[in-house]
């Protein structure tokens, strides 16, 4: 199949798939950010049970393979009377995994601050709230820009899990398997989808790098 034939037959499918991938990525990443902040707050709280739950959450979801988690959510949860539609299943999987890594990014952002700064702030008479808002959060956010850029790309790549369940419309990986099971799309059919991913990743990476250069703290 040539490029023009491929695009005239499946061009619309590719476009819808690319938009679906973008949409899923955006929704998932928004939730990932909220959930990572919540988990991180739990992990730095002075309450031991909350810390344990937060640490446990991160260890489970950063170590579970995406497919295993997706299969559990799609096939096992209905047996426990939790039924979600397919695209929600994929997004939930991506959110759970992404937020574990997101919380790790925030934690290492907090860890780079150094105990000395906290002690210095306290000796200047800053209250706990002031320390958190004026010292910890600004620095943690700044040093988390680059890791979060990489996380956004990882979130986009993991939406390809959508190809493992019947979704409509398909996302970018699903559409390649759809096309190749119907006709011999050849290497081109694959390259078009790959270009969608690589292009998006390049744009995200570029913006992230620029932002990082602007806000990075030189040490």
């Amino acid at each position: 199949m040539g490029l023009s034939e491929l695009l005239s037959t499946y061009g619309q499918d590719y476009l819808t798939a690319l938009l679906t991938t973008w949409w899923m990525t955006a929704v998932a990443f928004a939730f990932v950010m909220v959930l990572s902040i919540a988990v991180t707050v739990m992990r730095v709280s002075p309450l031991r049970p909350l810390r344990l739950v937060g640490d446990f959450y991160v260890q489970v979801f950063r170590n579970i393979p995406g497919v295993a988690l997706l299969i559990i959510i799609v096939y096992a949860l209905p047996n426990l009377r939790v039924v979600l539609d397919y695209s929600t299943c994929v997004i939930v999987t991506v959110i759970l995994m992404g937020s574990a890594f997101g919380s790790e990014n925030f934690m290492s952002g907090i860890n780079t601050i150094g105990v000395g700064q906290i002690e210095a702030a306290r000796s200047l008479g800053l209250t706990f709230t002031q320390i958190i808002w004026k010292i910890v959060i600004p620095q943690a956010l700044r040093s988390a820009v680059l890791p979060m850029t990489n996380l956004l790309i990882a979130v986009m790549l993991s939406t390809s899990l959508g190809s493992q369940v019947p979704m409509s419309p398909d996302e970018l990986t699903g559409v390649v398997s759809f096309i190749n099971t119907r006709s011999t799309g050849g290497i081109l059919a694959f390259l078009i989808a790959a270009l969608g991913y690589v292009g998006t990743a390049a744009v995200i990476g570029f913006v992230g790098n620029r932002l990082d250069k602007k806000v990075r703290i030189l040490r």
């Binding site: 390809s160 899990l161 694959f190 991913y197 690589v198």
Partner: peptide, 22 residues
Amino acid sequence: DFFRGVPSLLLIYFFFLVVPQY
């Protein structure tokens, strides 16, 4: 950059569906 920017599932479909076509 290509291999870093492409999901591994897409590569798996490449070897599973596309390579046999050749």
